[in-house]
Structures are given as C-alpha cells and as structure tokens.
Amino acid sequence: MQQIIVRKLIVDEHNELFDAQGMRYIEFPSDYNRIREYTTYVLQDCPEAYKEGNLLEQQLSEIIKNGIKHGNKKDPSKKLKVWYDLRKRVRFIVEDEGEGFTNLEAWNEYYRKRQEALFREDFDTFLNLASYRGPNSDAEDGGNSLIAALEYWNGGMIYNNKKNKVGVVRWFTNGSSVGTPQ
C-alpha cells in the first residue's frame, strides 16, 4: 500500500542539535559568489565516505546559500556562523544575522499540498507546486532545497525560535547505504 510522506520543518529552540559543545567553528562574510568555496572549506577534512560523491557538499551548500541569500540578503557586513562536526556522522549548525525564516509554517503547508498532489498522481498540480515561491523568492531561486533537505538530514533539521539558525545531522548507519569510515 502506497503511503504519503509529509515531513515538516520544526522549531525547537532547546533541541540538542543546537548544542555546539565540541564542534568546530568558522564564520564567513556573506559573499554570494563564494558559497561553494565556503562549503569546500568546511568539508576539507571530511571522510570521503560521508561525502557520498558530492551529495554532502550540495546539501551543505544549500544551507549556506539560504543563510547568505535569504538570511543576510547578501550583505557582506553580515556574518554566517557555521559549527560543524564530522565525526561518526555529519552535523552542522548554521546561523545568519537575518530576520529569520518567517514563512516556515506557510512552507510546511505548501509542502503538504505538494506531497498530496504527488500522492494522488495529480502531476499538473504537482508541477505547479514543484517550486516554492515565497514573498522573498526571486527568479533565480530553485524553490526546492528544503524538500530534499528534509530527506537528506535523516537525523533532524531543526530551527531556533527566531528561525535564523538551523541545526542538521545526517547519520550513516541504520539503513544508510554508506558505511562508517575506518
């Protein structure tokens, strides 16, 4: 029997994913042209098995992009703070200086409608809903990064109350196709 899967973005200020103890830290200026460079820097010591080709780079890059573009509005005077831990699993906390993802609940509702359309194989509706368009979206926004992120970050994707800080984790055990590096 086919099942509909509707995940949600969650706000939990005190979630353990925001515990940065023991994590490495770096901050970047909000330079849109250097997003992939920043990502490569953070992952330079990451075990190859955790990278899954360039999938980890792609997913981390999306979070950094969201912080720099939507959070800090590409203002180079605003910093993007990144905490990271690449031991046993990959875990990140990314915080920007913006006003926060104020449309989080609207996004959850959008995603529910999108998944329902897919479930009933209403591909015309699904195609119309394929990209999220929020009040701050522009023509270059893909509008789908959070959809993939909810699946990729299999240990959680949590926002703080202000919604300008996100904690994520991906585990590589219990069903993952990737083994733990030696």
Binding site: Q58, A130, S131, E140, G142, N144
Partner: peptide
C-alpha cells in the same frame, strides 16, 4: 552533469512548466 543543486533543479522545473 556531475553536480546539481536546487537552482539547477529549479531550472529543470521551470523548463518543464514552460514546455507544458
């Protein structure tokens, strides 16, 4: 194509919408 991000996926979606 060896690397695809959400902007690339967005381009595919917009191309699909325009073709339709």
């Amino acid at each position: 194509v060896h690397y695809l991000d959400s902007s690339g996926v967005g381009t595919i979606i917009k191309t699909l919408q325009a073709a339709k």
